[in-house]
Every structure is written in C-alpha cells, then in structure tokens.
Design a protein around this nucleic acid. Sequence first.
DNA 1: CGTGGATAGATTGTTCAACAATCATCCAAC
DNA 2: GTTGGATGATTGTTGAACAATCTATCCACG
Lengths: 222, 222
Amino acid sequence: MTTSSDVKNLAERVTEQIRQRILHGDFAPGQRLSEAALSESLQISRNTLRETFRVLTKEGLLKHEPNRGVAVAIPSIAAIIDIYRVRRLIECQAIAQAYPSHPARKHMRQAVETGLQCRDRGDWQGAGTANMEFHMAIVELADSERLNVMFSHLLAELRLAFGMLQDPEFLHGPYVEMNQQILQLFESGKLAECATALNDYLVQSERIVLSACARHPIFKGR
Amino acid sequence: MTTSSDVKNLAERVTEQIRQRILHGDFAPGQRLSEAALSESLQISRNTLRETFRVLTKEGLLKHEPNRGVAVAIPSIAAIIDIYRVRRLIECQAIAQAYPSHPARKHMRQAVETGLQCRDRGDWQGAGTANMEFHMAIVELADSERLNVMFSHLLAELRLAFGMLQDPEFLHGPYVEMNQQILQLFESGKLAECATALNDYLVQSERIVLSACARHPIFKGR
DNA sequence: CGTGGATAGATTGTTCAACAATCATCCAAC
DNA sequence: GTTGGATGATTGTTGAACAATCTATCCACG
C-alpha cells in the first residue's frame, strides 16, 4: 500500500514518529519544538531533525516562524472552515461519481464496523479514527493517488483540532450511525441522495466542531 | 497574496529558485541533482540544500530515491491520468458551485486576455502560463486556501510534463479560445453548461497530452 | 568470450562543532 | 511607566568528517 520500500531513511522514520506523536496528542497544539532538546531526546542530529520539520510543516502539522522555530500548528477557526469547504467539495463529488461496486467499498464497510465496535466499547478515540478512515475511503472512490495523500493531510490537520476539544462522545458519537446510513445509501446505488446526505452530514459536523471551538478557551478573543 | 512576510530564509529562497528553474526547464525531467555540485554552484551548504530537496520532493517536483539522491520528477502516463482526474473533480465542482460575481473572475478575465496576447505574439510559453493561471483562477472560485496551494502543486507537476513535449502551438493553441468560451458561459451565469464545457475541455486536453506522450521517446516501452 | 566477483571511487546519509543572526528577557535610566 | 540597551538563548547556516550504499572497473575463472 505504501510506496514500495519499507527501508527508509532515519529522517523519514523520525518524520513518521513525530507525526504520530503530534496526532496522538503527545505534543499539544501551540507547543514549540526545540531543535536542540528534541534532537537530543531522539538521539539524532539537529540537521536531520530540521529536514523532518520542513516536511511536517508542508503537511500543515507544524507551523514555522522564521528565527522562532517550529510549533505544533493550532487550527484556527478559519482553517476549520477552509478544511470543511474542501471536504464538501471533494467527498461529495467523489461519492456522486463513483460506482457502487468500487473496491474501496470494503474500506467503508470496515470503517463503519470498527466505528460501531469502538462506540459500544466507549472508545471514542478509536471511533474518531474509524470515522476518519470512513471518509478517507470515500475519497478513495475517486481513484486518485494524489487526491488521497492530499486528503489524508487534510484529515490529519482536522484531527489536530479534534484533539484540542473535549467531550469526544458528543463529537464522535452521532457519526457512526450517520456513516452507516451513508454507506447504505451508497450500496443501494442512490448516489445523488447519498451525496446530499453526505453534504448535510459535513455541514452539521462543521457546525458542531465550530461551536465546540467557540466554547474552547484558546479561541476566545481571536 | 503570499503568506505574510517576504523576509525568508536562505533555504526558502533557494527552494523557490530551484522550483522556478525546474519549471522553466533549466533542469530536465529525469536529471539528477547532485548535492555536492548544486550546493557549490549555489554557494550554499549541503545541509541547507537538503532541506529544500525535502520540500520540493513533497511538492512532487523532485523524486527521492534512497541512497541515490534526488532527480527531477518524470511525469508518468499514470501521473498525467491521475492529475486530470483530480482536475476534472475539482475544477468542475468549483465552477459549478461558484457565484458569477466572484472576485476571482477578474483573474479569469486577465488570464484569458494574456493568453490571447501571447498567442498573437507567437509566445506559446506565455500562452501555457496564462492557461495555467486561468485554471488556477477557476479553483479560486471555491474560496479555499488549501485547495489553492494543493492545486498549484498539481499544475506545477503537469507543467513538468508539458515541458517535455514538443510542439507547444499544437498543445496550447486551441485552449485560449476554449478558455474564452468557458469564461463567457460563466459570466452569463450558465453554471451547469459551463461545468459541462469545462469537463469536455479537460477530457480533450488530457487526450491530446497523452497522445503527445505516446509519440515521445521517453514513454516508449514503459 | 562471457560471467562473476572483488575492489576502488563516488554519492548520499548522518553527525558534530562552530559561528552569525535574530529573538526574548531583564534591568537600569529617564 | 516607558524607553533603551546589555545579555542569554534559539534558530540559521556553514564546513568538515565519517559511515553506508551504490556504480563502475577490472581481473580471474570457467
């Protein structure tokens, strides 16, 4: 599934590691990553670490300020609106023009299944991940490698925002059933209805996230 | 229009410089860029140059092979197909859901105008650039910063492919009028027709590019 | 003559140390 | 309280060095 070789550079391995630590919340949004401190703690040189910083900055997970180093990106209200705008455009179109027997349907089913299990288990972290996988699978319907990687970066950035918000049950709870519903519409071939439902879903999701942001201290007065 | 400051790092300035040189054809697709040679010719250190390589690799302009360094990316047939798939999805949807008085309309007009002038002057290089600007303006209709940067990378990668192909008049000649036609449909508010015309345009453009590739020696036997 | 492998050369991967440039802090002077 | 400059810390950039890997050459062997 990945690009050929698993034999990667040290720099690429570290990039993946830091990426995961950011998404897992080990590094909080806004936290500055010191080159000296992090390179020592990871047992790598500053130069190698700087290479990874450039990559993660391009992915939108880090923010680089000249002569001030990098910090974990803080998703702004504007960023969230922007991301949902892209999601509506891409996801709805991807599902509208797909054929229902597309192999990515397996991924959609799998994600819905996992989401149900996680919800029943009370694992909202897992439910959130499953939700991301479901929408990633929707984009796979468009059969474009470039769209896939671009969209995965988009979802990663959004996950950063989710990580900042409390009340995960409220955030991810309703979506498992909505995903199930969308999958049903898709498999029954009602693509137009499906795209409409997905659009409504995204509008509602955006609204919930934004209202959660409005209650969050970090967004007050920005 | 750019992100705040014009005061940039050496690394970022060099990144921009190399990017331009690649797109301008100073570095041919497939050409390997030696760290030692290029860093010396640019009067910068290898470490700084490597940072720029990582960025340009993520943008798709360079290809990185472990222990073999980087080379200017060679657009494959598959890549071109992939790119046009994304273009159809994004551009058509962007124009379909836009409102005709959007400020980006100015950019569309400007690009069409420039395209006409370049064509009459026989400047097919400029006509190609104007064409890219026109389609960039279409994406701007969607009002998403992220979509804009993602799409600009896509077009840059495509420009790499155009650069490899000869016969620029044949490639870029018909498009100035087609763009004009699309702009007219858009300004008259016939968005559905406009999206359809744009889709046809992209299908035809893809076909022409692919057939040009088929005649190109580098693609024979791949 | 062709094949295979050893060897040497070149390039990338990674680290380290140093210095310049810039930013943040703090304290004194007004 | 504000301005101003000295001070310390961090990033920006460089050069050199060595390890790891790939490429090319050449020679021995069948």
